[in-house]
Write a protein that binds this DNA or RNA. Structure first.
Length: 460
RNA sequence: GCCGCCAUCGUCUAACGGUUAGGACGCGGCCCUUUCAAGGCUGAAAUCGGAGUUCGAUUCUCCGUGGCGGCACCA
């Protein structure tokens, strides 16, 4: 089995493309002798820069979807196309024609929608493009694993252009040639190509090649029901990465967008996906990308992970995104403090970032908590307790602080919230005991003192 | 305009022609609770419409409606 994935070199792999890549990859990984081929559709020279291609490759690598062959660029194969083009002219399957798009449109209007048939002119005629001769009778049948059989009447199909006046090949011709010459057996791609397929089939037939197995995936839509696209809400793989999603969670989520194994299974390891995935079970209708569900699933993966490994992932993530804490010896402790709370690696910083950088006081949080009756006294007592507690670990700190609460006869929050704001600067953070221990005794006392000072100045 | 694809809770999906139409996210309620989460229990929520086939239709057929795609010397 030879499976190919053919991204456009836009420098941007979005969710839809990522899912298509994943399905291709899963299919290719099912048997040991299968080959996953990467073919770049870069006939459009404007955007197919090396940099744009490299970004696509990076996204595939991050997703863990390695390829066996390629990336092959269309632009590198011009002599192959020229040869095939010449063969089609020689056999009479293609001919030069001077008609423009407008001419074709007019001709179709005149015939009531029948396919355009051109008039051959000599090669080299000014403005002549090469068209494929489509049979007048019969039909071109697309057999699709997902969509079933679709029939296209040949008489309604235009003799379409396969090469420009300058001899450069067009997409529908180039893919067909590549699929044939690369021995591709499975083409899994977006639904939007279904109407192109008869054209590729016609080229293949003229070339004397056997068609591959086709599978056309329904497109992914946004929350508004419109197809996802670069300019319309599509999240890129790079954004998944920088937002702190795990590739394995993204793979699991993407696999489920348009495919289901049974009535209840939601979590699939990648090995299970490879084993259980099949094109036959892919849904025929479009799916809507739901980031909330991805977040939920990512959180599940995070919590499932061994804490040493999670710490390692966090370290890499913090480094890559210039967040403090990556090289701090307290990283593992901080990981333990957040692992039940975060759903993306990105959220680590919100909950424990305070321990790795100077205090940043959020005024709103301060006003909300420190204005309350007894906040100052609670802080004074907490300070005394924390200055004396031994050992300075979570159980010890908890005992000491709960004793303060009891001594004051208040609710736990009346002590914990002022303390939280004093040491983290905000009302939202990891648990207070964990936060205190993470900060360390000295820094905790220093920050409480600073808060008390500020409080004193505010309340004469 | 022509050709084509698609249609189950808000969303992702499950259901050899026979199920109280199942699960998950999200949402509501309750519990837990030092904030935020997480977790536990629990509730509401769907077969686009109309014909036909059949003892019986979410499932098969046709029509309609709606959504989407293609109809480039783009990919």
């Amino acid at each position: 089995m030879r499976v190919r994935f053919a991204p456009s070199p836009t420098g941007y792999l979005h969710v839809g493309g990522a899912r298509t890549a994943l399905y291709n990859w899963l299919l290719a990984r099912k048997s040991a002798d299968s080959v996953f081929v990467l073919r770049i559709e870069d006939t459009d020279l404007e955007r197919s820069t090396d940099e744009a291609i490299e970004q696509i490759l990076d996204s595939l690598r991050w997703l863990g979807l390695g390829w066996d062959e390629g990336p092959l660029r269309q632009t590198e194969r011009s002599e192959r196309y020229a040869e095939r083009l010449a063969a089609l002219v020689a056999s009479g399957d293609a001919y030069w024609d001077v008609a423009t798009g407008d001419d074709v449109k007019k001709a179709k209007e005149a015939t009531g929608g029948a396919g355009y048939r051109g008039t051959p002119v000599a090669e080299g005629t000014e403005g002549a493009a090469l068209r494929l001769r489509v049979p007048d009778e019969g039909e071109t049948v697309v057999d699709d694993v997902i969509k079933g059989t679709t029939r296209f009447e040949n008489r309604l199909l235009d003799d379409f252009v396969i090469a420009r006046s300058d001899g450069s090949p067009l997409y529908n011709f180039a893919v067909a040639v590549d699929d044939l010459e690369m021995g591709i057996t499975h083409v899994v791609r977006g639904d939007d190509h279904l109407s192109n397929t008869p054209r590729q089939l016609l080229v293949l037939k003229a070339l004397g090649g056997e068609p591959p197995t086709y599978a056309h995936l329904p497109l992914l839509h946004g929350p508004d029901g419109k197809p996802l696209s670069k300019r319309h809400g599509a999240v890129s793989v790079q954004e998944f990465e920088s937002s702190g999603f795990l590739p394995e969670a993204v793979r699991n989520y993407l696999a489920l967008l348009g495919w289901g194994y049974d009535a209840t299974t939601t979590f699939f390891s990648t090995a299970e996906l490879v084993d259980k995935f099949s094109l036959e079970r892919v849904s025929r209708s479009p799916a809507v990308f739901d980031e909330q569900k991805l977040r939920w699933m990512n959180g599940q993966y995070l919590r499932e992970m061994d804490s040493a490994e999670l710490a390692e992932r966090l370290r890499e993530y913090l480094r890559a995104n210039d967040r403090p804490g990556a090289d701090d010896p307290r990283l593992e402790r901080a990981t333990l403090a957040v692992r039940e709370k975060i759903s993306t690696l990105d959220e680590f910083d919100n909950l424990v970032g305070f321990a790795f950088r100077p205090l940043e006081l959020d005024e709103k949080s301060w006003n909300k908590v420190m204005g309350k009756e007894g906040a100052g006294q609670a802080l004074v007592r907490a300070r005394e307790a924390l200055a004396a507690v031994e050992p300075f670990d979570e159980p010890g700190v908890e005992r000491a602080l709960r004793a303060v609460v009891e001594g004051l006869g208040t609710k736990a929050g009346a002590v914990f919230q002022p303390l939280r704001v004093a040491i983290t600067g905000r009302t939202v953070s990891a648990g207070v005991f964990e936060s205190v221990v993470l900060l360390g005794r000295d820094e905790t006392l220093t920050r409480i003192d600073a808060a008390l000072e500020r409080l004193g100045a505010a309340t004469p």
